[in-house]
Design a protein around this nucleic acid. Structure first.
Length: 635
DNA sequence: CTGGGGTCCT
DNA sequence: AGGACCC
């Protein structure tokens, strides 16, 4: 990392609270413009010239900028949108598949430019990228005496990959705006932070151009030193543009650009300060409960509560905020966290890119859902979608060259699908419609209730069709969960049902992972002995080291005081370490429930804590059976 | 009659 | 299991 000018300077402090702005990182925030509408337009380019709205149930979830020009906006009621703009083109967008696919593709595209894989998605249409390493690498390369003619290198290995740019200036807009008189004034180009922000802005512009030319999508971008600031500053120039937050970032007296920028925001606009926190903060500075409708009464006028109003309020600081905002159920350190946000400080890292989500959920909302028969039908619809999603998002298909068993000379490309991750839990949630009040009105509530169960292993079968698996899932798991959730025989009236696969456990601990290697070796070689070799990625250099996995498995068993047993057929080592929660439940009709233990000659080899798989005869502790069953399911 | 998703914390 | 936050 480049030596920085920081000595990170202190932000003005209250009673000894030191707040530091982390200035060592350069972060870019991408926000695709009117994303759902852009996906539709990419499919049907003729719609680009028309006002276009995407509908889910009764609302416009998003609309393109042509529609916004004509007065439409996000989360508007459909009826109102049609009134305002009668010739609006409305497209139904309740099925998110196309949006999810487009989001994945764009995310993968942006990731391909990253060196450190620190790319984090938020929702379908936002991505942060930590480009500190790329920027610092290029700062080291550039000639400080000829900044105007600089080459931005995009590859550590190929010095010709990149683009020419002028490092003495920013690409795109800035905050604050640079006026024409200031533009000629001497700027401190030796300020490392300024120079790094310049480079970040040019990289951002390059990526935006690539996104347009290669993928056909425009986006709005912010460039700064932390996730909070780059996300906020991007909003300054909205569709299809970019803004960089310029230094100085620190000062003794609040005259820095960070403070002046963030101070003008309404408190609820700060990411991380949601409805509840914003209401508490407003109530504190207004000295009265904040108006629910956010049209806040402030000194008799209709004014908003700004970050500045809170930040400069008497006795304000992390402890005061902790008192105002803290309490049972609230996260620890909320006062310090919010104090940081109000000062433009955010030390949360841009997350490592993931290839598997932590949760997959499918839901639908209903005007009226009352009979068990209807519920069962809807559960089936949702289950099909969930299984399709699991296949789309958790299954890795690689075209694997395989020798056909019939004809050794015939080498065919066979699509070999394997689970990248297994959700351990299935969850059913509903949103009961609040009962009618005596006066006929309804309280509005969006609260959900839920029950969970272990995910049955049969859902991982790749031999059975989704249809038959979905039916079984409904019958054996979801209907029982529904009865647990709604023990009353009837009378419930649901406005929403959600089915989710949660508790994702990676099949392989790392990329190129252990579990897959084992499985492939089996497929290719059918070599029983080599099953027990595992590659343990050890050092930073990624060199692989052979380790005898039977020793590892044995270690685990020894903890359970088991006698040594012959190795079962492949339990994928990474899974065998999942732990004791990975236990099948009685409802799953597994072939190795305790009663299925062998009672014959080698019974004396099995103590009460070990079980035998009927399918293959393998002996294992109960905690290994879930992984083992999934292994059978896909082989 | 505010959608259909997500994440993390308690 | 629920709540708060994000889009």
């Amino acid at each position: 990392m480049l030596p920085c000018n920081t000595t990170p300077m202190d932000i003005p402090r209250r009673r000894g609270q030191r707040l530091k702005r982390q200035l060592d990182s350069i972060i870019i925030h991408f926000d695709y413009d009117a994303f759902y509408a852009s996906v539709i337009e990419a499919e049907t380019p003729s719609l680009r010239a028309r006002p276009l709205a995407v509908q889910q149930k009764q609302i416009v979830v998003t609309c393109n900028y042509e529609a916004r020009r004509r007065g439409l906006y996000k989360l508007q009621l459909i009826t109102e949108a049609k009134k305002t703009c009668p010739d609006v083109v409305i497209v139904l967008g309740e099925d998110l598949t196309r949006f999810r696919n487009a989001s994945k593709e764009l995310y993968a595209f942006l990731r391909s430019f990253s060196w450190n894989s620190r790319c984090e998605r938020l929702g379908f249409d936002e991505v942060w990228m930590d480009v500190t390493d790329i920027v610092d690498y290029n700062v080291r390369l550039l000639n400080q005496n000829d900044l105007a003619n600089t080459f931005f290198c995009l590859s550590k290995t190929d010095p010709t990959e990149g683009f020419a740019f002028d490092a003495s200036g920013v690409a795109g807009h800035t905050y604050p705006e640079v006026t024409s008189t200031e533009a000629d004034a001497p700027r401190d180009l030796w300020d490392p932070l300024r120079l790094r922000l310049h480079l970040g802005s040019h990289l951002a512009q390059h990526l935006r151009q690539k996104l347009v030319s290669k993928k056909g999508y425009t986006c709005t971008v912010g460039v700064s030193t932390n996730k909070l600031l780059c996300k906020l500053v991007g909003n300054v120039h909205k569709p299809s543009d970019q803004t960089t937050l310029l230094p100085p970032y620190t000062s003794e007296d609040g005259c820095d650009n960070v403070t002046s920028f963030i101070d003008e925001h309404e408190v609820g606009k700060i990411p991380g300060i949601g409805f509840k926190l914003a209401q508490k903060l407003r109530a504190h500075v207004l000295q009265q409960p904040a108006d629910f409708d956010s049209g806040l009464v402030y000194g008799g006028t209709n004014e908003k509560v700004l970050v500045r109003d809170i930040r400069t309020f008497s006795d304000m600081g992390p402890e005061t905020l902790e008192r105002i905002l803290g309490g049972p159920g609230t996260p620890h350190g909320i006062g310090a966290k919010v104090w940081g946000l109000l000062n433009g400080c955010d030390d949360t890292e841009v997350g490592q890119a993931r290839d598997v989500p932590t949760q997959i959920s499918i839901e639908d909302s209903y005007v009226r859902l009352v009979a068990l028969e209807e519920v069962t039908k809807e559960l089936l619809v949702l289950s099909r979608s969930l299984l399709r999603r699991m296949h789309a998002d958790l299954l890795d298909d690689d075209e694997d060259l395989q020798v056909s068993p019939n004809d050794g000379a015939n080498i065919a490309a066979i699509s070999e699908k394997r689970w990248l991750a297994f959700p351990k839990t299935i969850r059913l949630s509903t949103r009961p419609r609040p009962p009618q009040n005596p006066d006929g009105s309804r309280n509005r509530s969006f609260a959900r209730i839920s029950r969970s169960a272990p995910m049955p292993n049969f859902v991982f079968s790749l031999k059975d069709g989704i249809e038959v698996l979905a039916e079984r899932l409904v019958k054996e798991t979801l209907v029982p969960l529904f009865r647990k959730l709604h023990p009353e025989k009837s009378g419930w009236n649901l406005s929403l049902v959600n089915v989710a696969a949660t508790g994702m456990v990676d099949a392989a601990s790392e990329k190129g992972g252990v579990g897959r290697d084992i499985g492939k070796m089996l497929k290719r070689q059918g070599d029983v002995l080599k099953q027990w070799k595992v590659y343990d990625t050890g050092g930073q250099d990624q060199t692989k080291e052979e380790v005898d996995v039977s020793m590892q498995v044995q270690d685990v068993w020894d903890e359970k005081n088991l006698e040594p047993s012959p190795p079962p057929p492949p339990i994928r080592p990474s899974e065998s370490r999942i732990g004791s929660e990975d236990i099948p439940t009685p409802s799953q009709e597994l072939s190795f429930l305790p009663e299925d233990r062998w009672e014959s000659e080698d019974e004396d080899m099995l103590d009460d804590d070990s079980y035998r798989c009927e399918e293959c005869g393998g002996v294992m502790p109960i905690f290994a059976m879930g992984a083992h069953a999934r292994w059978h399911a896909q082989n």
